[in-house]
Nucleic acid binder design. Structure first.
Length: 213
DNA sequence: CCCTGATTCGC
DNA sequence: GCGAATCAGG
C-alpha cells in the first residue's frame, strides 16, 4: 500500500490531533506504526511544536479533562480496501448463545452498599418507551458481587481513552460525576471484562430466575 | 508486558 | 521513499 495524497492527508490530520502512530496505522490499514512514524519523519512533522526540541510530553493529551468522545468523523472516501473500522471503545458483549443466554447485569455502582445514593439528575429515558428488563441487584449471587467489589478496590481506574483490547471495560460509578472510571484490569482473552466482572456480566438464565424475587 | 516515538539502514 | 528492526523510554 502506498502513500496516496489521501492517506498522507489522513496521516497529517490524525497526527496533528495527537493520535498515536499505532492508532493512525490502524485507521489507515495496510501499514504498521513504524511505517507511520517513518512517514511522519520524512514529512518533517515529528516535533509539532516548533523551536522546542525537548520532551514532547504528550501525556497531557490522555489526561485531558472529561474524556472527550472520539469525534465520529465521516470516513473520507477511501478508495483502497479500507476496513473502515468503527472506533467503538466499549463494545457490548457478543450476542449470547441460545440456551445459556446470559444477560449483562446492571453495573454495580461503587461503594459497598446496595443502596447507592446517586446525584439528583433527571433520568434519560426515551419518551413513552419502556425500559428493557433490568437485572436487579438480587439476581446476582452475593459471592459474585463480593468479588466484583473486591476487584474494584484494586482496579486501575482507567479513563475511557485509556481502555485497550485487553483491559476490563467495566464501568464503575456515575458517568455524570468525577467519581467514574473503568476497571482496567486485564480482561479475559476475547472478553470485554476481567474475570470478576465477567462473572457479574454473564449470568445464566436459570441462576437469575432462581434468585429473582 | 503493555504501550509510546526515534533512528538506522537495506531495499 | 519506504518501513522492519531496533533502540530508548513510560
Amino acid at each position: 500500500m502506498s502513500w496516496t495524497d489521501e492517506r498522507v492527508e489522513t496521516l497529517k490530520k490524525m497526527w496533528a490531533e495527537g493520535q498515536s502512530a499505532s492508532q493512525i496505522a490502524k485507521e489507515l490499514g495496510g501499514v504498521t506504526r513504524n511505517a507511520v512514524i517513518g512517514k511522519v519523519h520524512r514529512l518533517g512533522l515529528s516535533n509539532r511544536v516548533g523551536g522546542n526540541g525537548d520532551k514532547p510530553e504528550e501525556e497531557a493529551v490522555a489526561e485531558a479533562p472529561a474524556a472527550r468522545v472520539e469525534p465520529v468523523r465521516a470516513a473520507a472516501p477511501e478508495a483502497p480496501a479500507a476496513p473502515a473500522a468503527p472506533v467503538q471503545p466499549v463494545r457490548a458483549p457478543a450476542e449470547p448463545r441460545a440456551a445459556e443466554r446470559p444477560q449483562p447485569a446492571a453495573p454495580v455502582s461503587n461503594g459497598g452498599n446496595n443502596v447507592t445514593p446517586l446525584p439528583l439528575r433527571k433520568a434519560i429515558v426515551p419518551a413513552g418507551q419502556p425500559l428493557p428488563p433490568q437485572p436487579s441487584i438480587n439476581e446476582i449471587s452475593p459471592e459474585t458481587l463480593a468479588s466484583a467489589r473486591e476487584v474494584e478496590k484494586r482496579a486501575r481506574k482507567l479513563t475511557l481513552m485509556e481502555l485497550t483490547e485487553r483491559t476490563c471495560k467495566w464501568p464503575v460509578g456515575d458517568p455524570a460525576t468525577e467519581d467514574f472510571w473503568f476497571c482496567g484490569l486485564p480482561s479475559q482473552p476475547g472478553k470485554p471484562y476481567c474475570d470478576a466482572h465477567v462473572g457479574v456480566a454473564f449470568q445464566p438464565m436459570s441462576a437469575r430466575r432462581d434468585r429473582r424475587r
